[in-house]
Design a protein around this nucleic acid. Structure first.
Lengths: 236, 236
DNA sequence: ACCATGAATTGGTCAGACCAATTCGAGTGG
DNA sequence: CCACTCGAATTGGTCTGACCAATTCATGGT
């Protein structure tokens, strides 16, 4: 059950010497049968169980933290975010999140979002389609009531990433959204990007529903074109 | 960007904790004008300079190590692998190292590569175009001579990422290529993806040269369609 | 000039202590 | 009986100092 070599893929990035501690910890955690959201054993217990120094434990945890595998909360504990499996390879990306880079990030997002929509249209199942429509209905309802619908818009797009059948799109795009909103949190700017692009969300859904990948691509481009205008407008 | 007054922050605030310590270290390293391959200051020196404990320093280094930003060699030092600034965003990706992971990555790559080619076609300058053509000529020459041209193919595509004017594409796509080749290194498979898609590299260049974004998109799709076939063929 | 050897450098680990935030339960008051 | 408060226990975060292991570099001898 415990993969003897799951850390070896990372040994190109991390030093192979720490592999022992990381491997032992991975084994211990895997043996504990933890699921995402569960709390890892306290650092001091791992020190006892694994007979290694606490700093080593902490460095391994930091490593996983950097990879988004675990999350630590002071006073509470360290929690598992993603299941550790032998087949998972972690690819770190470092991208510039400068404010002037908003348009650059949008271009990347356009490439990804268009592809995700097209894939969703070409392989979306009935169940996933229902979820998308539910999110769309919720978004439209909230939008008509409050005039904007930020979280619901996010939920709608996330359901499309889900429907495309490739988890990488969801991972990449939601990470990009997070960093963008982190940027906004720093510079107290506030724009509801979903406002003007609102009607195209329904047309995008229709394209996905009938399985028309090219139409899904075009509708996604329309949405992002409006986002681009809004960003340029805001930066002026 | 690099704050010119980071030394003042350091001296007036003694509470440089990990999150801040990471920023402070990033600032310090950026201020040192280090380039990839250069050696970072020794941990004990950073302890003095930044007025934080060595364990904190090590945990930050560990973090960057996990993200592939630095590499540590015992007895030698810690070396910078990628340029880092205080505002760099790190996006860890979890990729299935199983066979299906290759196709998943290809889908992501298709989204990015298509957009990069289209952008390159719409805003490529004469200088960048010359570089692309040089790389293409070199690739064709090597291909005709040896039958395959892996590195030259990579160089050709990299020049397109450069020409698109958005550094994010180069970072993302080259990281993905690295991880893919890491996959191949593990599972001793070897395929020259550039072989059958070879002729379409010239047509892609032509599309970029005349500034036809849609044609560039189509030609890129042709190349990636062949890569997809090769992958599926290989996995059989 | 070359090379071997040992000291200095540098990352890796361990141990213990203390701080800070959270959690949890006993005790109190309603 | 429930809800709240407050303090102790828990847990992550940091600092210090020490020692080990690998590398680097200067010193000296040939």
């Amino acid at each position: 059950m415990v993969p003897a070599d799951w850390t070896e893929e990372k040994s190109e990035i991390a030093s192979a010497r720490t592999g022992d501690a990381m491997q032992a910890m991975a084994a211990f955690i895997a043996a504990s049968d933890l699921r995402p959201g569960d709390r890892l054993p306290p650092e001091r217990r791992l020190v006892d169980e694994l007979s290694v120094g606490r700093s080593t434990i902490r460095e391994v945890i930091r490593h996983w933290q950097a990879l988004g595998v675990v999350e630590s909360r002071q006073g509470s504990g360290t929690y598992l975010l993603r299941r550790i499996t032998p087949e998972t390879m972690h690819v770190p990306l470092a991208i510039e999140a400068r404010r002037s880079g908003l348009l650059q990030m949008l271009e990347v997002r356009r490439g990804l979002e268009v592809e995700a929509s097209a894939l969703a249209a070409s392989r979306c199942q009935a169940g996933a389609l229902r979820i998308i429509e539910d999110r769309l209905d919720a978004m439209e309802a909230v939008h008509l009531e409050k005039g904007c619908a930020g979280p619901e818009d996010l939920a709608f797009h996330l359901s499309i990433y889900e429907a495309c059948g490739n988890p990488l799109f969801g991972q990449l795009l939601s990470q990009m959204r997070e960093s963008v909103s982190a940027l906004f949190a720093l510079s107290d700017l506030r724009v509801d990007f979903a406002a003007r692009s609102f009607p195209f969300h329904r047309t995008l859904f229709n394209a996905i529903a009938i399985g028309n990948a090219e139409a899904a691509r075009v509708e996604t481009l329309k949405i992002l074109a409006i986002v681009e205008e809004d960003i340029k407008d805001m930066l002026r």
